[in-house]
């Protein structure tokens, strides 16, 4: 297989949503001595951009998007460690994402994570049932500029407020923007607790994240 063909097929594996193929092609690319950054930019990113276009045009739906994102993540896990010391994948921002303490709901949060990843963000998903302190320490460790906090229960909403407060106490409030989401959440609640934004679904979460890091939507 020519180098061009490997890169084209990498893109196609993302468009087709085939994580196993993507991983195989990524390994093959490294074996053949391809530049991993070129594979990422011209293969994976081109593929996920095409997925995004197909979604926007109504041809693709969430499962296509999610599995495309999974294929991209799987191939990235192979390619990124192979980047040379001075190479870095271009990312829009670093995001720490999780579900707040006392809340075990996962699907919506993970969906947001995949959408952000597919749109060029580097996402650290800290999981579910996480206290405010974990969000703050993860943001510090990952040098993140964004925190995304999900709460699906009316009883766990106040935990989102704690994240904003603990960021202030840690002296990180100026560097880190906070976006919140979940079924009972409203813009009014975001305003009340001093969060930087609220998104009602995964698609608007991407637009919000871009806005918060100053990227044209």
């Amino acid at each position: 297989m020519s180098k061009e063909e490997i890169i084209t097929r990498l893109a196609q594996s993302v468009i087709d949503g085939e994580p196993e193929d993507a991983v195989e092609l990524a390994k093959q690319a490294l074996d053949e001595g391809l530049d991993p950054l070129v594979c990422i930019n011209q293969g994976l990113t081109a593929g996920i951009n095409r997925v995004g276009e197909l979604f926007a045009s109504g041809e693709y739906f969430l499962p296509d998007l999610i599995i495309g994102g999974e294929a991209m993540k799987a191939a990235l896990a192979v390619l990124e460690p192979a980047l040379a010391g001075d190479q870095e994948r271009q990312i829009l921002g670093r995001v720490v994402l999780g579900t707040v303490r006392g809340d075990l709901h996962e699907i919506g949060k993970t969906l947001v994570g995949t959408m952000l990843t597919a749109n060029g963000f580097l996402v650290t998903d800290i999981g579910i049932d996480k206290p405010a302190a974990d969000f703050v320490s993860a943001a510090r460790e990952a040098n993140a500029t964004l925190i995304g906090a999900s709460a699906l229960l009316t009883t766990t909403m106040p935990e989102q407020q704690k994240i904003v407060e603990e960021l202030k106490e840690a002296g990180l409030r100026d560097q880190v923007r906070v976006m919140i989401g979940g079924a009972p959440i409203t813009q009014g609640w975001a305003d009340k607790i001093g969060a930087d934004g609220y998104a009602e679904d995964a698609i608007s979460a991407v637009a919000l994240a871009k806005q918060l890091v100053g990227v044209p939507v």
Binding site: G58, L62, P63, G108, L111, E200, D201, A202, I203
Partner: peptide
């Protein structure tokens, strides 16, 4: 069932 356009 989930709405596969929005995830809602």
């Amino acid at each position: 069932v989930l709405d596969m356009r929005t995830g809602l």
